[in-house]
Design a protein around this nucleic acid. Sequence first.
DNA 1: CAAGACCGTGGAAGCGCTCTCACACCGAGT
DNA 2: ACTCGGTGTGAGAGCGCTTCCACGGTCTTG
Lengths: 348, 348
Amino acid sequence: MARVEGTRSLAGPGGSPTLDEVARLAGVSRATASRAINGGNRVSSQAQTAVDDAVRALGYTPNPAARSLVTRRTDSVGLVVPEPDERVFSDPFFARTLRGVTRVLAERDLQLVLLLTRPGEEEARMLRYLRNRHIDGALVVSHHRSDSLADHLAALDLPCAFVGRPWTSADKVAYVDTDNLAGGRQGASALIERGCRRIATIAGPDDMSAGVDRLEGWRSAMREAGLATDAVVHGDFTERGGEIAATTLLERHPDVDGIVAASDLMAAGALRVLTASGRSVPGDVALVGYDDLGVAERTVPQLTTIRNPISEMAEQATRLLLQQIDGDSSVRAMRVIYPPTLVRRDSA
Amino acid sequence: MARVEGTRSLAGPGGSPTLDEVARLAGVSRATASRAINGGNRVSSQAQTAVDDAVRALGYTPNPAARSLVTRRTDSVGLVVPEPDERVFSDPFFARTLRGVTRVLAERDLQLVLLLTRPGEEEARMLRYLRNRHIDGALVVSHHRSDSLADHLAALDLPCAFVGRPWTSADKVAYVDTDNLAGGRQGASALIERGCRRIATIAGPDDMSAGVDRLEGWRSAMREAGLATDAVVHGDFTERGGEIAATTLLERHPDVDGIVAASDLMAAGALRVLTASGRSVPGDVALVGYDDLGVAERTVPQLTTIRNPISEMAEQATRLLLQQIDGDSSVRAMRVIYPPTLVRRDSA
DNA sequence: CAAGACCGTGGAAGCGCTCTCACACCGAGT
DNA sequence: ACTCGGTGTGAGAGCGCTTCCACGGTCTTG
C-alpha cells in the first residue's frame, strides 16, 4: 500500500492515480469501479457515489492507452489532409470545416489527430498508420484527383467519411458534398435572367470535383439558354488565380457582360481586374462568386454568390463517421448532398 | 494457437498481427523480436534479419496502445489553440505555424493532436486531458491574455513550448517569439526616416502580447524622434478591423502622413480606406504593415512591412518541445527571440 | 415455500507490448 | 585449467484497464 517513491506533485504516490487506487478508496473492487466509471450499468447507487467521490478526490482519469488496449478503440479520429499546402490551411473553407468537425467531436469527447501528407513516402506512412488502427476512423478533406486515398480506405474497411466527393471509389465510401452541378447552373442562370448574353466562367482546377462539377453546371445552363460556352478559363481557386484568369478572359473575350467564378476568392481577383480595366460591376460586367465564406461580403461591391453550408457539411460528415464507428454499417457508402443557394448581393 | 474467429482481411487469425506472431514466424522469442524492432541493440544480425523478414511478411506495426502503456509515452504531441475561432484557422499566421510544426514532427514520426478550447468548461476538460499525460507534450499557440494556460502547464511539469510569449509565467515556460518591440520601432523609424511627421498607428488588441509590444515599440521610436504619440487606434488584426480603425483615424487625425499597422491584414484594410478617401499611398500617406505572410504582396501598392519568420519560429518551438520530451531539462524555460526585419516594398 | 430470475459484486484473465533479470555461451586473460 | 567480462537470448513480470464468469443475495412467481 504505502509505496514510497519520489512523490509527484498531485495524486499521491508515483504519478497519476490508477483505477486500483480509486477502487481501494471507494471500498469496492476494480471491476465495480470500472463499471461505475463507464456509464454505471449494474452498479448500486451506493457504489456509484463512492466511486464518483473517489474519482473526484484523486483527480482520476482513465489511462487511455490501457483502456484502448482492451477496448480496441482509441477515441480519436484522424483528419486527413492530402497535400497540406499552406493554402489549404489559410483557406476559409478549411477553417469552417475544422469548426464543424470539432464541434461534433467535442460532444463525444473524441480527439482529433491531424494527418497531413505531402505526396510520396509520406502517403505510405499515413496509410500504414491508418491500417494499424491507431485511430477509430478517418475524416478526409478530399481535394485532388491524384490521391487514391478513397480506394485505400475503402479496401481497409476503416470507418471513414469524405468532405467533398472523392475522385475514385465514390460509390464505396461515405461522403458529404454540395450539388456543385446545380450551383454552377444557378450561377449561370442568375446572369442569364439578368439579361447577360456573353457570359464567361472562371472555372476551378480540373483535378478537383468541385471545379469540374461547377463548370459542367455552368455549361448545361448556358446550353439550355442557347448561349455560347466557349469563354472558359481555369483558375486555382485563389485570388491571384482569379486575377490572372480574368486578365486572360478580357483579352480573349473583351465583350463579356457576365462572369461566373468558381470561388469567391477568384471572383474577388476578377473584380479587381475588371475595375482596373475601367469596367463597372455590375454595370458593365455582372459577377457571381461561389462559396460565401466571408470574402464575398468584404469586396466592393459585395459579391452575389452561391452559398455552401460548409460547417454543416463537415458536421454531417463527422456524424456519418461516428455512426460507422458505432457499428452502423448502413451508412458506409452513404452520401449526403446539400443544395447550394444563391445569395444576391451587389455584383449581379 | 489456432484461434478461429472470423478471419479478417489480411494478417492471419483475428485482426492485425501481434509481436507474438512475428516472434513465432521469425523463430525467436518475443523479447528478441521487440529488441530487433526497437533499434536492435544486443541482437545478432541473424535474428535481426529474421525479425525484419517476419515483420514485412506479416505487415506488422506495433500496437501503439500496448506500447505506450508500458513506455509511458504516446508519441504524440498536442497543439493547443485557445479560442479556436474560425479567424485563428484562416489566419495565414496559423497556417504557417502548422507547417513549421508538422515539418519537425514528421522527422520523428510523432502525431499531432489538435486541442481546441473554447473558453469555460472546455478549458477544464483540456487541462484534465493534459494532466493525465495523454500526450507527451504540448505546443501552445499563445494568444490571449485571459487564458492562464501557461500557469497551469508550468505547474503540471508537462513538456511544453509556446509560440508567442505567454501572458503569464513567461519566465517558467519555453517560448519562441519575435522581438515585437523592435519590430514596432522599425515600423515607426521607417516612416520617420522617410520624412513623415504625423504618424499614427493601428495597434493590435491589447490582450495579446504581440499587440502590446508592437505598440510600445512604435511609441518609443516616436518619442525618441520627438513626435506625438497620440494617434493610436486599436484593431483586431483583421482586414475589417483595419478598415474601421483607419476610418476612425482619418476622422480624428485627418492630417496623418504615415501609418504603422500591427498586421498586414489591418494594413490592407487601411489601404482600402485611404484610397477610398482619395489619399494616395505612399504619396499622401505612407503605410507600413506587419507579418509579411503573403497578404503584403497582394495589395496595390504592395506593402512595406515587417517580416516575422513564423515557420522557423514554429519549428524552433517544436524542437524545444522535443528536447524537453527527450529529458533535456535545460530548455524548460528557454526563450528564443527572432529579430524582425523590415521589408521595403511600395507603400512606404 | 421452493424454484427460478435477476441484480450487484469481486476474482481473475488477458489486451500487446517492454524490460529486467538470469542464463548460456564465447573468447580472453590469469 | 579456471575465472572473468561481454554478448545474445528467453522467461516472465508487469503497464492499467475491461470484461467474462461465478457467486451470493433479493425478489418474484407457480
